[in-house]
Amino acid sequence: MPIIKDGAEVRDDPWLMLTDEMDVPTEGDVIIPLALASEKAERLSNHNGRIGIAIPNDVNIEDYAALIGTADLIQLELPAFTDGRAYSQARLLREELGFDKELRVKGDVLVDQAAYLKRCGFDSFDFDGPFDAEIWARTLSIISSGYQRNYRDSLKHRGA
């Protein structure tokens, strides 16, 4: 399960994914599934550490603007690499809700998708399978220009 950020594997990812049965620890960084957020709200208010929220891909992001505003990390899902809903959710988060903390994608990430995901606003990637830093770097930089403007855009655009 590598977690990739800035082109490299994160060795000690501080984030702990909470599940149903788990109690909210008193400290440390936790990611809580959206469905558990209200149930565990009280425990979370005393929590000493950063809080991330994992949002499924069939949720209307705009309905959770207030909650999202308090989060230190949002995690979106790619249950299958062909399921592109998270790309639009990411853009809504970045461009409309102004979310500017870490945006993580978890699931079936293929290296060839990473450039698109990044352009939609993701900055960390959590997926199964091998990670090859050299292929990753090459794949992300092979296309240097774009016709569309994007979040924290690093591509070349016409006339610029």
Partner: peptide
């Protein structure tokens, strides 16, 4: 044509 080319958001549509 230009706008839709390698569109980052709309390349994995249903």
């Amino acid at each position: 044509r230009q706008w839709s080319s390698l569109h980052p958001e709309f390349s994995y549509l249903p």
